[in-house]
């Protein structure tokens, strides 16, 4: 890679503002994410963290400011949006697997129809990722037959099958029963250690400590503090950060 390619940030947000009607939900967001960086975003509910990452693959539109993903500016241009979505994978809080398709079909749908991959190649790739998330034997089952933890792991594999450069996680473990959170976090740690650029909205602070390069705290639509995990957890600077950490690290 040439120096210039290496320098292009994976995700850039400059003075991004977003409103829902009159409600100013994202206020002056500035964020640069380098390739291979792992970011964890935390904050109280309603702080706009989900909205922030959903703006990155244009599931939400921002009204002011620039968002550039892998060098592609995110505007109303439909072609740009399609290009961005091909390079960005997303894992949802409620999995959103396609219930009428088998697990294998869930994973191969987008590669076949978007990247025009031949079926055999797509299926081999899918099995590779299913094995990586440790549930290859479920390939021919339907989502309704799997537990929540298994479904979320399938969802991660489904996003990975498109070979994205950036992975977004929107509270991936919040809808899971406690005993299934660990298996999903293990997959995410494995992914991080493989060098994937990740932005995670999550409350799992142990995960942040273990894997994140930066932890960002958001409150009321603005970025209040960001720091390395070590500094963030031992030495929070802003009083709002301190209050939040008190509440969740009891």
């Amino acid at each position: 890679m040439t120096k210039t390619e290496k320098d292009i940030p994976a995700v850039e947000l400059n003075h991004v503002n977003k409103w829902y009607g009159q409600f100013h939900v994202l206020r002056d967001i500035n964020l640069n994410v380098a390739k291979g960086e792992r970011i964890v975003i935390c904050g109280p509910s309603g702080s706009g963290k989900s909205t922030l990452i959903r703006c990155i693959n244009r599931l939400e539109e921002h009204q002011q400011g620039d968002i550039v993903v892998d060098g592609i500016p995110l505007t109303g241009n439909l072609k740009n949006i399609d290009d961005v979505r091909r390079e960005v994978g997303m894992v949802f809080q409620h999995f959103n697997l396609f219930p009428h398709l088998t697990i294998l079909e869930n994973l191969t749908l987008a590669p076949i129809w978007v990247r025009k991959t031949p079926k055999a190649v797509a299926e081999a790739n899918a099995m590779k990722y299913l094995t990586r998330v440790k549930i290859p034997e479920q390939a021919n089952k339907y989502p309704g037959q799997l537990s929540g933890g298994q479904q979320q792991r399938v969802a991660i594999a489904r996003a990975l099958c498109m070979n994205p450069k950036i992975m977004l996680f929107d509270e991936p473990t919040s809808a899971l029963d406690p005993e299934m959170i660990k298996e999903v976090l293990e997959v995410m740690v494995d992914l991080a250690e493989g060098g994937m650029t990740m932005l995670c909205v999550t409350h799992e602070m142990a995960f942040a400590r273990q894997v994140a390069d930066r932890v960002i705290f958001m409150d009321e639509g603005q970025i209040v503090e960001e720091n390395s995990p070590k500094e963030f957890f031992t030495n929070p600077q802003s009083p709002r950060t301190r209050k939040f950490l008190e509440q969740i690290l009891h």
Binding site: R85, F92, H94, M162
Partner: peptide, 15 residues
């Protein structure tokens, strides 16, 4: 969420 997941995977709206 089904539509959102499809969009996130890069499927066109027709697909």
């Amino acid at each position: 969420g089904q539509t959102e997941a499809s969009q996130a995977l890069g499927l066109e709206s027709g697909q």
